[in-house]
Computed example of a mutant assay.
Amino acid sequence: MKAMMCRAFGPPESLVLQELPSPPLAPGQLRVAVHACGVNFPDLLMMQGRYQFKPPLPFAPGGEVAGVVVETGPDATGFPVGARVRCSVGHGGFADEVVVAGKQVVALPDAVDFVTGAVMGAAYGTSLHALADRAQLAPGESVLVLGATGGVGLSAVQLAKLMGARVLAAGGSDAKLAQVAAAGADAVVNYNTQDLRAAIAAFTDGKGVDVVYDTVGGSYSELALRSTAWRGRFLVVGFTAGEIPKLAANLLLLKGCAAIGVFYGDYLRREPEHGRAEFQRLMGWFESGQLKPHIHRTYPLAEASAALRAMADRQVVGKIVVVPR
């Protein structure tokens, strides 16, 4: 098998394409030929040794893949050879095959292509879990998405609109925000050049925003928290700005609002049945054509470093995908 390996913590360019022996299958495991692997911000953090989960070196980045079952281990059931599947693997996806346990796999409908299937977990799964389960978003409510031009942020914009919310999308590039507006955001604000709190006040007629979806962290988090409505929900999703904010607890008291953590990977591990139900809800939207991911670009396996570099340099709107086959 071929894989792009991280042998020492460092920048994207430190990945090395290697030929490795295919690992044997333990009971209950499947071998999946990888046709597409979604690229996500945690891949960068893992390569730098900065993610909350640190796989032992050496490892291949890539946490979500779509492909075809090519071999089944003893006692493996539910997914025969030839089955089209989507897998949450945590890491190891920058390869032409992966070995997974059956509980990590869900069926991929024929109507969903591999590239689409590979991006439905980390981005769309996170956003659906955050908005529907953690925030209990209701139709007619307002949502502010911080970092709306990234893959996770744009998925939150799309899903919040499908759920009947009004969406204010915030980002740092006018050109990228124009694409987010075209994807359905009701309004956009460039928090590098505009007053974020003034934009929230104008969008909500001074009432404050019901839900904040924060993928960015840093200085924008407290500004958004100060502009939440009574009983607002502040979703802590990620820290792409590199700084973990220290939220003022008195603001939670004064607004009767809640700060809510969103850790999708651990949610899937702890509550797999709930995660599968949410995935089926996503599948319905994809199959009906109500939801379509914005794929910025695909990269061959040997160019996985370039994919990560594009993400690190904020050159991406929506999702990028490594396509080993």
Rank of each mutant, 00 (worst) to 15 (best):
A160R: 13
M1T: 07
P245D: 05
F263R: 15
R281I: 05
S219C: 03
F94K: 12
S22G: 13
V115R: 12
A229S: 13
F234Y: 12
D186P: 14
V112E: 08
V145H: 04
V236F: 01
G275A: 11
V16G: 02
F79E: 04
S221I: 11
G38R: 06
V180E: 03
K255R: 11
L108K: 08
A202Q: 10
V119N: 09
V145S: 06
G206D: 10
L177T: 06
K176I: 08
A138R: 14
G164S: 09
V89H: 05
P56V: 15
F234T: 02
E278Y: 08
L159F: 01
A178V: 02
V262Y: 02
P11C: 04
T204S: 04
V212Q: 01
Q29M: 08
G265S: 05
V81S: 00
D174I: 00
V106P: 00
P109F: 01
H129Q: 15
A241V: 11
A181R: 15
A312S: 10
R325V: 00
T126E: 05
F234A: 02
A111K: 15
F59G: 07
D266M: 12
L268Q: 11
F263C: 10
G125T: 04
K161L: 01
V321T: 02
R309V: 07
G289Y: 12
R84E: 03
L45R: 12
A130W: 00
S219L: 11
F53E: 13
A307F: 04
E64H: 10
A310P: 00
H91S: 12
V316H: 01
E303G: 02
A36P: 08
P293D: 03
H296S: 12
Q290R: 15
V237F: 05
F234S: 04
A178G: 08
K54M: 03
G147Y: 05
R269M: 10
I260H: 00
A175L: 10
L154M: 03
A181I: 02
D43Y: 09
A277G: 07
A259L: 14
T116A: 11
D174Y: 00
A306Y: 01
A138L: 13
L45T: 06
Q158T: 09
A199W: 04
A8F: 14
R309M: 09
V39S: 11
A259F: 03
K255P: 07
T149R: 01
G38F: 07
G242C: 09
A182R: 11
A198R: 14
V70R: 03
K207S: 09
D133S: 15
L17T: 02
E64A: 08
L308Q: 03
E287W: 06
A95D: 06
G121K: 09
A107F: 01
C87G: 09
A132C: 00
T215Y: 05
A122Y: 10
Q104E: 13
R270S: 13
F53H: 14
T77W: 09
V39I: 13
G93D: 08
V236Q: 07
